[in-house]
Design a protein around this nucleic acid. Structure first.
Lengths: 116, 116
DNA sequence: TAACTATATAAGTATATACTTATATACTTT
DNA sequence: AAAGTATATAAGTATATACTTATATAGTTA
């Protein structure tokens, strides 16, 4: 049986709260899809803002949130800043999500079995 | 190459926004863990509130959000309401998350390969 | 039926979020 | 160095969120 409220699940919850908060906005999700799509080789902040119908500061603020949440990295090249995915952190994020859904779906299966 | 801003990714983004919003709160995540842990066979709203140090209305409001987001189901038994996981919807949620992270991690791998 | 219990809802409030416009910072080009 | 460009930050504002307390609703039990 899963032990909840242990230090471990508590830490994971705090991390997941941060992650989900960063991803719980349609503009930030779209930014992620734009970067994932690779339609454009390198996308500047201004280009992303235009593509999204956002002002430059609005896009910048969203990108900062995604960077703080360790979803994106920023790399400065000359006048431009290119945002890329934080690969290692994302693998880590995915593991935590899989843990959460693992707990939940395991519980679902157990309940189903019991009621059969 | 992933086609973004198609109707498909747009719909998924809207769904994920709702899902992540529901999960982007430490109290709601903890409620999910409590229900997943199965430490208690059936947990009433009041018990959950107590366990979490929340008032009954606060817990009720969080549970409503989780229910609206199709994470939980409510089943009334006498005076009590027992919340359980919405198994089918959760499988659906997980697929959408896997799609998002699939897009992102595939992009990471492609970028890594290009730079080697 | 009356009293009791569990949960939900309503209304109010403090804080967080997502934008806005204005401006600062960092780099480039002339 | 001066002017121009890209991005970030600051400050303000409207809305959303997460609580609060009070009360309504639905079911149970005496």
């Amino acid at each position: 049986m899963l032990r909840i409220n242990t230090e471990y699940t508590c830490d994971i919850s705090k991390d997941l709260e941060e992650l989900f908060k960063a991803l719980s906005n349609i503009n930030r999700l779209t930014l992620v899809y734009i970067l994932a799509s690779g339609q454009m080789e390198k996308v500047s902040v201004t280009e992303m803002a235009e593509k999204m119908g956002l002002t430059q500061p609005a896009a910048s603020q969203h990108l900062k949130i995604l960077k703080t949440a360790k979803i994106l990295n920023a790399k400065k090249q000359g006048n431009y800043i290119y945002y890329t995915f934080n690969h290692n952190a994302l693998i880590n994020h995915k593991e935590k999500i899989d843990f959460l859904f693992g707990c939940v779906l395991t519980k679902c299966d157990q309940t189903k079995q019991k009621n059969e």
